[in-house]
Design a protein around this nucleic acid. Structure first.
Lengths: 236, 236
DNA sequence: ACCTGAACACCGTTCAAGT
DNA sequence: ACCTGAACACCGTTCAAGT
């Protein structure tokens, strides 16, 4: 019996196994509850054993990001830039939604991991292939911001589990203090159920914003290329 | 001498004094180095004394956010929605830039503080006064996201102090691996100085994105009101 | 040479003992 | 009743002692 447990613990620890266990643990208990000690226990290993495979917690988090970004579908070949960008971003969103902690960890890093850099490079390449100039592509990438990885920081953070206390307060007192907020919150939840929650359709809002941005980019690209055409005509 | 020190420590501790000291400390040493023990020492007070004025660290952070949001200029009266929104957001940006930790703390909260709610309410009110429907305002607020408070999460986090190691790596190896990233990084730093850093003009990029969004919103509002006019005409 | 238990220097917060 | 020192239950990581 004890031997069996020992045998199970003997499954070779590898960087990959450490990272996958860390991702699973963060998915289950939340990123704030993920600790080196905690993760080691889950793997049936002494805390210091982890340091064979990751230099420190920072590197562990880097590796976890790479696992998540690795779940993003490869770019679809042979489509126009707008469709290609849209599809890839929505795929990134799907991956990120499976790991709610990932966006926060990505933000907290000050240097992107090679895997993230590769993703960004491919995205920039889509715009360049679509006829955007280097400069316009640069501005466009800044404008799209974190949405390029499928997330935005929501100021009202968690719309799924609305604090019932918050909900109660909102309805009585706050309707007088924040009439516009309440007006919008009320309009968003015409589905029934509750008056405040479950809030709005996050996917719809994400795509609404994404499409507004992509339409804006398209307009700027046309303006840019007609600029060039005009110059070519006047000098040609 | 000892009496003098004692006297200084006797300056009445108040919630306000605690919050201001916390903001100053976070400004100086960074949010990750701000601890209850740390802050207490700065105030010449025993750690537990703080708990008289804030229930816990969470509430301390809430209070700190309120201090920062309180630095945002009031909305300018008597201008069109676009100018008013633009000015307020740029003022928010100015406030947030003085406290680099603030955006991260705001994001990490799951319920907005009353002060943030009030700010949001005023912003929503600007759109409503500008003729936006409740639904369109809702979508617009989601689209603008955290930019409404003057910040976006930068995926390449700190453009001011570029890691020299990163810089060195980028130039040699990575130029082959991430050609598009390097192309953009190169174009952004035509000022001279260094090839990668100091990167791009954050303020320009922020305003570029903000204006693209505001233009998009304006277009949608016009589409919406001409919709209404058409219906009014056909039924009138 | 490799592995690992104990220890270090922190945290936020509880709680009981002091005034 | 108020204040506060010690203690609790954590953390990431170092380091020396064991094999």
């Amino acid at each position: 019996m004890a031997q069996q447990i020992k045998a199970r613990r003997r499954i070779q620890l590898s960087r990959d196994r450490v990272l996958r266990a860390a991702v699973a643990l963060a998915d289950n208990v939340g990123i704030e509850a993920l600790s080196m000690r905690n993760l080691a226990e889950k793997l049936g290993v002494v805390p210091m054993a982890l340091y064979k495979h990751v230099a420190n917690k920072e590197e562990l988090l880097d590796g976890m990001i790479d696992v998540v970004v690795g779940e993003i579908d490869p770019p679809a070949p042979g489509t126009d830039w707008k469709t290609a960008v849209r599809q890839r971003i929505l795929s990134a969103r799907r991956a990120l939604l499976h790991h709610p902690w990932a966006s926060r960890v990505i933000e907290s890093k000050k240097n992107p991991t090679p895997v993230v850099l590769e993703y960004m490079d491919a995205m920039i390449g889509m715009f360049r292939a679509g006829g955007f100039s280097v400069n316009l592509t640069h501005h466009v990438m800044h404008t799209i911001g974190s949405r390029v990885l499928g997330f935005t920081q929501e100021l009202f953070n968690d719309s799924r589990t609305v604090d019932p206390e918050m909900q109660a307060i909102m309805l009585r007192e706050l309707a007088g203090k924040y009439p516009y907020v309440v007006e919008i919150a009320g309009a968003a939840s015409h589905e029934g159920e509750s008056v405040v929650g479950p809030g709005c359709d996050d996917q719809f809002e994400f795509e609404f914003a994404l499409d507004l941005l992509l339409d804006g980019f398209e307009r700027l690209r046309h303006a840019e290329s007609s600029e060039t055409t005009k110059i070519a005509e006047s000098t040609g």
